[in-house]
């Protein structure tokens, strides 16, 4: 009996100890993951100052599983005229001239056995900041949410507590109208974005095959 509890203690005590480190690692330390990027891009500048909608650059998020990063050409829609002498834009110009894409370090990362659809969430009118935090306050992009299963499931269990309704800055359309490029910046006013649509009374899916297949 004594031997058994000794083995138990030998296994368990380090386990608990390491677990604490691990929980810290995953829940606290990983938040704030901020790798150096090849191009210094400030979300705050673009969103807070110039009110560019998220959807303008992350153009696929309404249609696809992936939000997509803007192509080099997409950057140059504005920057061929705006502040085009800035040194910070060297990366973009070099990429355009050499046809070599800009390589970004991935921050929001899901393992490949998880299927997450941006389109499903955006069509349900969940604001970007629900999962990505207040990106509009960041000069340098970093991980603001833990991105683990518990975090996903918590929200699916109790959405009212977590979900942020769409903000105008996200550019989540309530209509399916195709609004492109310059129109998006110039013609669409803030009010156009915010048409409340009743969310279905159905509970959010929690079964395994929602994400794993």
């Amino acid at each position: 009996m004594a031997g058994k509890s000794l083995i138990f203690a030998i296994v368990l005590i380090p386990a608990i100890f390491i677990d604490i480190i691990l929980i810290y690692d995953v829940y606290v330390k990983n938040i704030g993951y901020e790798p150096a990027q090849n191009a210094s891009f400030s979300h705050r500048q673009h969103i807070e100052k110039y009110e560019i909608k998220c959807m303008f650059c992350h153009f696929a998020s309404e249609k696809s599983d992936y939000a997509a990063l803007p192509s080099t050409k997409n950057c140059l829609i504005c920057h061929s005229a705006l502040r085009n002498e800035s040194k910070l834009l060297n990366v973009v110009n070099i990429s355009m001239d050499s046809s070599i894409p800009i390589r970004w370090n991935r921050i929001y990362r899901l393992p490949d056995f998880v299927k997450f659809s941006h389109a499903a969430h955006i069509r349900s009118q969940i604001d970007c900041s629900t999962c990505h935090g207040e990106v509009d306050k960041l000069d340098s992009m970093r991980l603001l949410k833990p991105m683990n299963m518990k975090w996903c499931v918590d929200c699916h269990r109790n959405p009212v507590k977590y979900i942020i309704p769409p903000r105008s800055i996200s550019g989540i359309f309530q209509t399916n109208a195709e609004i492109k490029g310059e129109e998006l910046i110039n013609t669409v006013s803030n009010e156009d974005y915010f048409i409340p649509v009743p969310r279905s009374a159905k509970p959010l899916p929690l079964n395994c095959s929602t994400c794993h297949y």
Partner: peptide
């Protein structure tokens, strides 16, 4: 316990037909 570093590589010139995913 650290996720491996990954890259995202967007295209230089977008195609009007192809959407990722």
């Amino acid at each position: 316990c650290k996720p491996p570093d990954e890259r995202i590589v967007p295209v230089v010139e977008p195609s009007s037909e192809v959407y990722p995913g």
